[in-house]
Design a binder for these strands. Sequence first.
DNA 1: CTACATGCTGGAGTTGACTCCAGGACAAGC
DNA 2: GCTTGTCCTGGAGTCAACTCCAGCATGTAG
Lengths: 171, 171
Amino acid sequence: MNYSIGQAAQQLGISIDTIRYYDKAGLLPFVKRNAQGRRTFTDNDLHLMRTIICLKNAGVSVAEIAQFIQLRLIGDSTLAERARLLAQHEADLRGQIADLEDTLAYLKFKEWYYQTALAAGTEAIHLVPGTTEVTPDLADQYVAHLKAQGQEAAARRFRQVKDYRNRDHHH
Amino acid sequence: MNYSIGQAAQQLGISIDTIRYYDKAGLLPFVKRNAQGRRTFTDNDLHLMRTIICLKNAGVSVAEIAQFIQLRLIGDSTLAERARLLAQHEADLRGQIADLEDTLAYLKFKEWYYQTALAAGTEAIHLVPGTTEVTPDLADQYVAHLKAQGQEAAARRFRQVKDYRNRDHHH
DNA sequence: CTACATGCTGGAGTTGACTCCAGGACAAGC
DNA sequence: GCTTGTCCTGGAGTCAACTCCAGCATGTAG
């Protein structure tokens, strides 16, 4: 079964222009044309494009995906290199997920801040009296709250995030 | 304790230019200046900026963070609205994490593909003989492999991802 | 007194990933 | 034989989030 660019776009959930952009960028060397010069997509093409979209979702740049596709074109001699690239992208992805989990822990802390402030009717309960500065032991209060709720794991996680964020970064 | 823009940048792990960009964008209305017109950052300022960086990490745009900061400036009357925005961002973040987990499941499938191909010395074991098309039941083989390894949960997850990806999307 | 580090502003430039457009080809339906 | 729909190309435009620059001010070290 063959599909037009419009049908392919619909099935993949991306725009026609995006497909043409990927083609220009060298991501779709396997896509053939018909007698009129129009692109025709096979089921196998769509399968490959799903892998491309997967890599894109994993935060891999178009240039890096193009490199991967070029290796594929060369053949079996590049199998090890391709496996290595995928493993690298997997490690990056795990890192991204861990970062987002940390961000989530911090966001929950902020939500606790607003839930308690809302319950009190004012943000003042978290501020040093007469200022707009938050109380210095706010994070400790939150950890105590988590522990009181029996959420030991969450408390440990938040402590780590907090300690990490307060340490100097050197990028 | 007060810090210069350079010290703040170092402690937060972002560049001086980024801080100035955030200031221009209205994210830092709370930062004061000294007699020479230079920005001075308090510990509390850094705390607030860590929250901003957290939201940025959660994929929130600068414009949306600016809106949040404006609400904070107004005071207690906006507490409920701020709590609502945070809850929304948390939901978005959970969605992002789930998407990345799906991507990870798909990436692991591809890694299995390359591990087995490497073991065989050729990609041909996954292709329809004489073509460059992957065998139609490749995904099923992978699921069988996962089950044989006792990874029932991973098998279920992959099946869902696969089914989802093969269904039409309508964005 | 001069050099140097650090800061300021307004504004221009960069990057990646699209997204849109003008101008044209072709097949099908009326 | 005209309109409509879908496709083609090269190239320009957009957008967010920085990133860099010129030109200037100021505080400190030698």
